[in-house]
């Protein structure tokens, strides 16, 4: 039987929705029993959110002062100690999981399976390579623990309504002090989170300036949507990097994605190919974005977008 340990992602207050997606993936392993580990300085609130997720058998809380910020260097030895008896250790392929899980895998002496998009069996998975231009089927060695990250855009969050037991767990390992959290700066906004929003509006380089991005925000607010951007718009300094959608930014799967002034470079398309409906608004009728768009409108975004905002 497979026993999967899922490492919860959170910000110290709330469980990140990526965790319920990783649980969805883990529950797809035949006969899997899924536990969630919450590392925090104060874990009870986050643990009860994890206990609510369907398919979770147990929630383990590991409370230590060192876990007030989730750093790979301090988490990895604790996860290794906790992983005894588990056949799989999974995390999300968010920056949190990408940073952490390879450190865990190396300490356990195994390779990691990155970005699981399909589970074929307990040791057999599909994952994207070459920026999503190919899908590779891989097989991990049978008698070894499988350490993996899960491509969250490939999974819907497991439903709530569970009440899994929560148990406090001690992990007695020495932790390094060579890595220290200083601060985090985020363009905090009241808009829905880009990675979990059901609707996303993104702007590209054609917007021309950060002031002009205003029409994107107005449309997004009318729709209750999250706001994203192409790499070109981020590199041009119109918006901060955490808004970037694409292979090198965030990979998202909203029900509705509206790409405005985005030509559709392959690296951007990789980030949106699991979206429900893609709408493209672009001046250039030949832009590659129209090849993948469900609904396309060629024309001047500076007149179309305000008109659309008014029409909604």
């Amino acid at each position: 039987m497979s026993k999967v340990l899922v490492i919860a992602e959170h910000d110290g207050i709330e469980l990140n929705p990526s965790t319920a997606k990783v649980v969805s993936c883990a529950a797809g392993i035949p006969g899997a029993e899924v536990d969630v580990a919450v590392f925090a300085s104060s874990a009870s609130e986050i643990a009860s959110q994890a206990a609510d997720i369907q398919s979770v058998a147990r929630v383990l809380t590991i409370e230590r002062e060192e876990n007030s910020h989730l750093l790979a260097a301090t988490l990895a030895p604790q996860i290794v100690a906790l992983s005894d008896g588990y056949s799989h250790v999974f995390g999300p392929s968010t920056t949190f999981g990408k940073d952490l899980m390879p450190r865990v895998a190396a300490l356990l002496g195994v390779n990691q399976i990155s970005d699981i998009m399909t589970v074929l069996g307990s040791h057999s998975f599909k994952r994207p390579v070459y920026a999503g231009n190919a899908v590779l089927t891989v097989e991990a060695l049978p008698l070894q623990v499988v350490v993996a990250t899960v491509r969250t855009a490939s999974y819907t969050a497991a439903a709530g309504g569970n009440s899994a037991p929560i148990s406090e767990t001690q992990v007695n390992v020495d932790l390094p002090t060579h890595t220290r959290f200083i601060d985090i700066q985020s363009g905090a906004s009241d808009r829905p989170d880009l990675q979990t929003a059901s609707r996303v509006v993104s702007g590209g380089r054609a917007l021309g300036s950060s002031e002009n991005f205003d029409i994107i925000y107005k449309l997004a607010d009318k729709l209750g949507a999250g706001v994203g951007a192409s790499r070109a718009a981020v590199d041009a300094g119109y918006v901060p990097n955490e808004m970037q959608v694409g292979q090198t930014g965030k990979i998202i799967a909203p029900d509705l994605y509206i790409a405005i002034g985005i030509s559709g470079a392959i690296q951007h398309l990789t980030g949106i190919k699991d979206a429900g409906t893609i709408v493209a608004i672009n001046k250039d009728e030949e832009a590659p974005i129209f090849e993948v768009a469900d609904i396309g409108l060629a024309g001047d975004l500076f007149s179309i977008v305000p008109e659309l905002t008014d029409a909604l």
């Binding site: 195994v110 891989v138 893609i278 396309g296």
Partner: peptide, 23 residues
């Protein structure tokens, strides 16, 4: 240890949708 590569395949393609004329 090596993760065995079993096979490569092209990704599922999205189909081109419709073009509309105006808002």
């Amino acid at each position: 240890p090596i993760v065995r590569e079993i096979s490569y395949e092209p990704p599922a393609r999205r189909e081109r949708g419709i073009m509309v004329d105006d808002v």
